[in-house]
């Protein structure tokens, strides 16, 4: 994947919690339009790394360069605007809201209407709303949830909640999508479909970084594998991805 410049570079990143060195001198990069699998045993620091990239907390040392800019100290909600979207290990939907509304909130950073705008209803706002609804229905089509648009999100079966969370992340129009164990709790059929979806997302030119315990899925879809062990990047290269993507 050398034909693309790296979208994200992690350079010598350290992070400690109290006396525990969660991440110890991590360096790797993601080339634009690729799928990278992040694997390793529990407690290896995978989720910590995710939280650093998505701005939940800052790194102690090192640089995280996204799209040419250092994002190490940026807050979560600003990173979404720059093009980094994520999902959570335990699905975090807006449970009282409908499927459609979840996607509409997902477009928060792409829309402009503020408090005054909502009260005064300027003409451009209804155009913006219409556009948001159009994008939302496209995204719901993309993940295959269109017919459930008006269902309350907590009423969906678990597998679909995962899809909805991914769809909500896509709604922000990201360049980089972080998926934290997207296959956890899914059955075999759902996992296969998820693999297809992640490829489809990559084909939309969205770079994907995923943490996953399901090795067959990770090996199947990843263009690159990074192994973390006890906060360090393991030098042991895993068996190469079983098939190279044609691009």
């Amino acid at each position: 994947m050398t034909q693309h410049p790296p979208l994200l570079r992690i350079e010598n990143v350290y992070k400690a919690f109290g006396g525990v060195q969660a991440l110890n001198d991590i360096t790797f990069s993601l080339s634009s339009g690729s799928i990278t699998g992040l694997i390793g045993p529990n407690g290896a620091g995978k989720t910590t790394l995710f939280n650093l990239i998505s701005g939940v907390f800052p790194a102690d040392k090192g640089r995280i360069v996204f799209d040419g800019a250092d994002i190490r100290n940026k807050k979560s909600h600003l990173l979404v605007g720059l093009g980094i979207a994520r999902t959570f290990q335990n699905v975090e939907l807006f449970e009282t809201m409908t499927v459609l509304e979840n996607i509409l909130v997902g477009q928060y950073t792409r829309t402009r209407c503020g408090m005054w705008g909502s009260i005064l209803r300027f003409p451009w706002i209804s155009a913006e709303e219409k556009n948001s609804h159009r994008i939302a229905s496209e995204i719901l089509d993309f993940v295959g949830l269109s017919q459930y648009a008006d269902h309350t999100s907590s009423d969906l079966p678990f597998g679909w909640q995962r899809l909805l969370e991914i769809a909500r992340a896509l709604a922000s129009g990201p360049k980089l999508l972080l998926l934290d164990e997207p296959a956890a709790g899914l059955n075999i059929v759902e996992t296969l479909k998820l693999g297809d979806l992640i490829r489809k997302i990559r084909d939309q030119d969205i770079t994907v970084l995923l943490v996953e315990h399901d090795m067959s899925l990770t090996m199947e879809i990843s263009d690159q594998i990074v192994v973390l062990d006890q906060g360090k990047k393991s030098p042991k290269a895993p068996p190469g991805p079983s098939r190279k993507m044609k691009r």
Binding site: S76, H77, V80, G81, A85, E92, I125, A171
Partner: peptide, 28 residues
């Protein structure tokens, strides 16, 4: 009007989950 807008949806999102609201870009 506020409730039925981008702002209203974001407010309800904060209610349902502040972490997730921040993760979709809402300045909570």
């Amino acid at each position: 009007r506020i409730i039925d807008s981008r702002i209203g949806r974001a407010l309800r999102a904060i209610h349902d989950g502040e972490k997730a609201a921040a993760a979709v870009g809402v300045d909570t």
